[in-house]
């Protein structure tokens, strides 16, 4: 059986909120290392990969592999019934029909309990190899969100160019063009504002802003976001969580036909 207790319901609320517009039905794969999710969007150009390590829960117990097929719309409805600070416990039997969620208020003696019916989801899993990317940019997640939002007002696509000069986000649209240039930057007092660019070779790739704006819904999960790029391969956008847990998004680049 599965029993996983999260100190704050907020974490799961934010994760689900960040991915629910991209993917609808997905399997939460539970085993002794934690709870993982991998799902592609309908057009198969974007992929979500979530890992909540067992260390992110206390306690965490999962005796055998369980796939919980959950509709994220349903999960969102139930998670709205939890206060952000509630303690959240996920429970399921070994061959479950439902997943059970218990919300406990640390301040009051209120305990609420919900069951969500599970679905059989036949999901394709992709093997994503560990990749040495040509450029890795670590930057404030709010800054990345702002760039994507600002440029999406002008264009459907953004080109991300990374060179030893820094990183340039460029777009061209009907009304004109825009570009934002960032260089490596260290703020000793506010390290969350740091921009770090790790480059082994120059990279230039174009991506759909619609998807990037969508990924940025995860900004509330982490102060910093990591963008990993190599020419001609999908972009990795990573939001690191505590205990080596993470929320990652992959996006296929736009290429000439």
């Amino acid at each position: 059986m599965l029993e996983a207790r999260l100190e704050q319901a907020n974490l799961l609320k934010k994760v689900v909120d960040a991915i629910k517009d991209l993917v609808q039905d997905c399997n939460f794969d539970c085993n002794d290392s934690g709870i993982a999710l991998q799902a592609m969007d309908n057009s198969h150009v974007a992929l979500v990969s979530m890992m909540l390590k067992s260390e992110s829960f206390s306690p965490f117990r999962c005796d055998r592999n369980i796939a919980l097929g959950i509709n994220l719309g349903s999960l969102t409805k139930v998670l709205r019934c939890a206060q952000n600070e509630d303690i959240l416990t996920l429970k399921a039997e070994d061959a479950p029909d439902v997943v059970n969620l218990v919300f406990e208020s640390a301040e009051t003696d209120r305990i609420s309990e919900y069951d969500i019916k599970l679905m059989d989801i036949d999901q394709e899993h992709l093997g994503i190899p560990e990749t040495e990317y040509a450029a890795t940019i670590t930057m404030p997640s709010a800054e990345f969100q702002r760039i994507c939002r600002d440029l999406s007002a002008l264009s459907e696509s953004v080109s991300i160019e990374c060179s030893k000069e820094g990183v340039k986000f460029n777009c061209q649209g009907d009304i004109g063009s825009g570009s934002i240039h960032l260089r490596s930057h260290t703020n000793v007092d506010k390290p969350e504002l740091n921009v770090e660019i790790d480059l082994t070779e120059p990279v230039s790739l174009t991506f759909s802003l619609k998807y990037l704006v969508n990924f940025c819904k995860a900004s509330g999960l982490s102060n910093q976001v990591k963008l990993c790029l190599s020419n001609e391969v999908p972009l990795l956008v990573e939001y690191a969580l505590s205990n080596n847990s993470y929320l990652r998004f992959y996006l296929a680049p736009k290429i000439g036909d």
């Binding site: 057009s43 899993h125 190899p129 999908p234 992959y250 000439g256 036909d257």
Partner: peptide
């Protein structure tokens, strides 16, 4: 025209 390829072109099925 710019196209986005299916991710299955980049990653193999696990």
């Amino acid at each position: 025209v710019l196209l986005q390829k299916n991710l299955k072109n980049y990653y193999i099925k696990a």
